[in-house]
């Protein structure tokens, strides 16, 4: 067994071999998805609950579809409108949910660390679908799979992550994952959107887009998270686009075969020019969405295997 994790809370605690195991499995799921080969036995009899304390369409549907393709019984709980509004604490919600005996719990929460906290209180496998500004592991894994398929490898690449790094859990998980796989990471952002101490993580830090993009293999754009900003981080969207938006001119500094990625949803004309996003020779944005389902299938498959193994071990002990 090369994937030992009980939960998928972040990339931080994954070992490189666990990442590779997961990506290999996801790769085969991606192929089977394309061929229409079903695997409804993998999670048959298991219950998956999607608990989203924060709005999401893409990630939630991706997890839902992944669960359904593997035969799980999937339930969506929109937590924004529910008991939280009635004053229930996160831990009480977790205990209530735990009493319903789910097997897989997919959680998104606006606060960093909230999914870790919840995972301590339940007996099922927990998948972090994004916690505050902390981690979004399945996004980093699907990005990794997309890169690996496009570039043929996931090591010794020069990768630029550009934009609102400060508010981005996607950036944190990607920095962690790409660093573990021994890539060269360049971070490009206006200083107001660059968290402090990033050089300590082994990243190169740039304030200038042209310099930062020089000769990179991968350009990863981030969404400007307007909803997380309390106060002015940038003077205006048009100035931001002028200085940090990805257009053909800036992209010309990257390698000629560099791929362009974006976790979505995109703000066209703010962080990325529409023609770049739609350029099928450069943009892998649609492939990222496709890989998202495959990666989530693989993650749930592996966690379910570990869950079943630990449950049968417990039964034997009894």
């Amino acid at each position: 067994m090369t994937f030992r994790a009980k939960h998928l809370l972040g990339i931080e605690h994954l070992h490189p071999t666990e990442i590779t195991t997961l990506l290999d499995l996801a790769d085969s799921y991606a192929e089977h998805n394309r061929k229409g080969i079903a695997h409804r036995d993998v999670l048959a009899g298991l219950t998956q609950i999607n608990m989203f304390f924060e709005n999401s369409t893409r990630t939630q549907s991706s997890f839902e579809l992944a669960g359904k393709r593997l035969g799980a019984d999937v339930m969506n709980m929109g937590m924004q409108a529910s008991s939280i509004k009635k004053g229930e604490t996160l831990i009480d919600t977790a205990l209530t949910l735990n009493a319903m005996r789910p097997d897989l719990l997919v959680v998104r929460h606006p606060h960093s660390g909230a999914v870790d906290l919840l995972a301590q209180k339940v007996n099922c496998a927990v998948l972090n679908a994004g916690d505050g500004k902390h981690e979004h592991p399945t996004q980093a894994l699907l990005d990794a799979l997309t890169i690996r398929r496009a570039k043929g490898r996931l090591h010794r690449l020069s990768i630029a992550i550009c934009g609102d790094i400060s508010h981005s859990r996607v950036a944190r998980s990607n920095i962690m994952l790409l660093g573990k796989m021994e890539n060269r990471i360049r971070l490009i952002a206006p200083p107001t959107l660059m968290p402090s101490g990033m050089a300590d993580f082994g990243c190169e830090v740039f304030e200038n887009m042209e310099e930062g993009l020089k000769d990179v293999d991968v350009v990863m754009m981030l969404r400007l998270q307007k909803e997380r900003m309390d106060g002015g981080f940038i003077p205006s969207e048009r100035e931001y686009f002028h200085r940090y938006g990805l257009d053909a001119e800036k992209l010309a500094h990257a390698k000629s075969d560099a791929i362009v990625m974006h976790p979505g949803p995109m703000n066209r004309g703010v962080e990325i020019d529409g023609t770049i996003a739609d350029d099928i020779n450069r943009s892998v944005i649609q492939e990222q969405v496709e890989m998202g389902v495959a990666v989530r299938m693989a993650a749930m498959d592996l966690l379910a295997q570990n869950l079943r193994a630990s449950r049968s071990a417990q039964t034997q002990m009894v």
Binding site: G113, D131, G132, H134, R169, R172, S196, G197, D230
Partner: peptide
């Protein structure tokens, strides 16, 4: 305002407002 930890590498790693 709104800070939970001291800014720096640790705050950045944990995604907490510093």
């Amino acid at each position: 305002n709104g800070a939970a930890v001291t800014s720096g590498k640790f705050a950045s790693l944990r995604g907490l407002p510093g």
